[in-house]
């Protein structure tokens, strides 16, 4: 079976073969053992690596030598099905500002109908005693404001909705 792996914008197709793994340009002898519920020991061409692994929404979250990699994994069938179904386009004319972290809304700097340019301040959210000004990433018109000063917001909660002309 072949797998598509992805992390931080990098993509690799890797095949699981009996003795290990086949990358696009090479084969590697590979062996993996679970040490505990979340710790694995891996040998890749004789080189040992200790890692921690847990499932994530899209694949596996892997920690090696103090660094964390969120690796998306799909087998070739899943990739084929997804490509057949076609991915919905995301630039459909409306955009949203979502809270990047949980926090307390200190100020809302825009109102419905207002035009914003990239870099314009939209909302100030306070988290862990620091104020963070959330800015517009692109130009557009505010279509709705879904928060107000004093609100406690969760991460990914929609704060402001926009209409974007050039969608």
């Amino acid at each position: 079976m072949r797998y598509r792996t992805e992390s931080g914008g990098e993509e690799r197709w890797i095949e699981r073969i009996p003795q290990g793994l086949r990358f696009e340009d090479r084969e590697v002898e590979a062996d993996l053992h679970w040490v505990s519920a979340e710790e694995v020991t891996v040998e890749l061409d004789g080189k040992k690596v200790r890692a921690f692994a847990r499932r994530s929404d899209t694949g596996w979250r892997i920690q090696i030598r103090g660094q964390t990699f969120d690796v998306g994994v799909e087998d070739e069938r899943a990739v084929a099905i997804r490509e057949l179904a076609g991915e919905a386009g995301s630039s459909s004319g409306s955009r949203e500002l979502r809270a990047p972290m949980p926090g307390l809304v200190i100020a809302v700097l825009v109102e419905p109908g207002q035009r914003v340019e990239p870099g314009d301040g939209l909302v100030i959210v306070e988290a862990m005693k620091m104020e963070n000004e959330l800015k517009a990433e692109g130009a557009g018109t505010v279509s709705a404001v879904s928060t107000k000063p004093g609100d406690t917001v969760d991460r990914d909660e929609v704060l402001i909705s926009f209409l974007v002309e050039d969608a």
Partner: peptide, 22 residues
């Protein structure tokens, strides 16, 4: 730019885990 060797290793581990899980 994360360490390229560790990135490759994490891809390898993810595939081993995914294949093993199936």
């Amino acid at each position: 730019n994360p360490d390229p060797d560790l990135l490759e290793t994490s891809f390898a581990i993810a595939v081993l885990l995914e294949a093993g899980a199936q």
